[in-house]
Design a protein around this nucleic acid. Structure first.
Lengths: 178, 178
DNA sequence: ACGTTATATGCACCTTGTTGCATAGTCAAC
DNA sequence: GTTGACTATGCAACAAGGTGCATATAACGT
């Protein structure tokens, strides 16, 4: 659906090779959209064929050659179109909730370890995001639009994982009392 | 990944035809896992081949015949296995956040309508869930394990959509002030 | 007669995502 | 000199999901 657009956003920030993009998707952008290197290398030629990005072979000393991609004007146009187009919220798919529903039939004890695991995972992410927030934005987001957008993205991560931790605590409290 | 298990959970509650399952996935279970009827009818024969469900043709008067599926002991075993198996949190894929990141480059104005739309959609869902909560659980979840699990599922919906509404409000406030 | 809605089931094609495998150069450590 | 880590790119097969199309019965209204 929108891996293409996620790549365009990343390339709009600055040109990159497939390898660079994978690194970015493991960090910043990856908090909102995941992609493996196999997906990336499959998608880039398609974007090139569509005329949304241009590619240039770059020889490197000490490292293998690479292909550096840059967004084109057509790509920037397509990206703006997409930004304005209505996109529904991502369809919900929560296997943990399916498990909770199953636990109603087969016994809550089966899913308690899973809930504890998920609490841990979300709590770790929450701590990470809160540290970034306190480190980079201790005086608020400021006036710069780009910085404000970065701040908002971070806030969504904080709110998301916080609500999960809250839910896990409620669930553990309710499922471990008589 | 786990549409199979979502179907098993639903069939463990009670037997159903493909058509019944689609209806359930449009309501209760569908709050956590979406599936179209095409997916359903493709998946059911696989579950039957795996021996996890059994099928029985049922003739009806006034309606077309149907095939009613029921979970088998093997299916119940597989379901219990899955309940206990660790499953990572669903990978995050938020196109709205990709848009926000794009907005940093192409202008925040482009995504404001999208954020308003999303706020509306999440607020509607939130209201729905809160009404169910106040209607069915005004005195809390009580002691029944099944009821407690239903309550927890509902709570996750409330927390999820609430955190989204909160984020949209923060975003609109930050992106519409000088 | 004719269209609509509800019940009921499916195929074909295409896109997206995952898993496993494969290759190849450079550099530092052991 | 071999092993491992990092850079860099890909293919093949499969699983999962989405879109569009197709079919059939029966009730109900107009």
């Amino acid at each position: 659906m929108s891996l293409k657009h996620a790549i365009l956003v990343s390339l709009a920030e600055r040109p990159a090779s497939g390898y660079d993009l994978v690194s970015r998707f493991d960090r910043s952008i990856g908090y909102f959209w995941r992609a493996s290197h196999q997906q990336m290398y499959r998608e880039l030629p398609k974007l090139e064929a569509a005329g949304w990005v241009s590619a240039e072979a770059v020889a490197q000393s000490g490292k293998p050659d690479k292909r550096v991609y840059a967004i084109t004007d057509a790509g920037r146009g397509a990206l703006t179109e997409w930004l304005k187009a209505p996109v529904g919220p991502e369809p919900v798919r929560e296997s943990l909730m399916v498990k909770v529903r199953g636990a109603a039939l087969l016994g809550a004890a089966h899913v308690l370890p899973e809930i504890r695991r998920h609490r841990q995972l979300h709590a770790d992410k929450l701590t990470l995001f809160q540290q970034i927030e306190q480190g980079d934005f201790s005086n608020g987001p400021g006036d710069d639009p780009t910085r404000r957008c970065r701040y908002l993205a971070l806030r969504s991560g904080v709110l998301y994982h916080h609500s999960w931790v809250t839910w896990c605590d409620e669930a553990l409290a309710l499922l471990t009392t008589g």
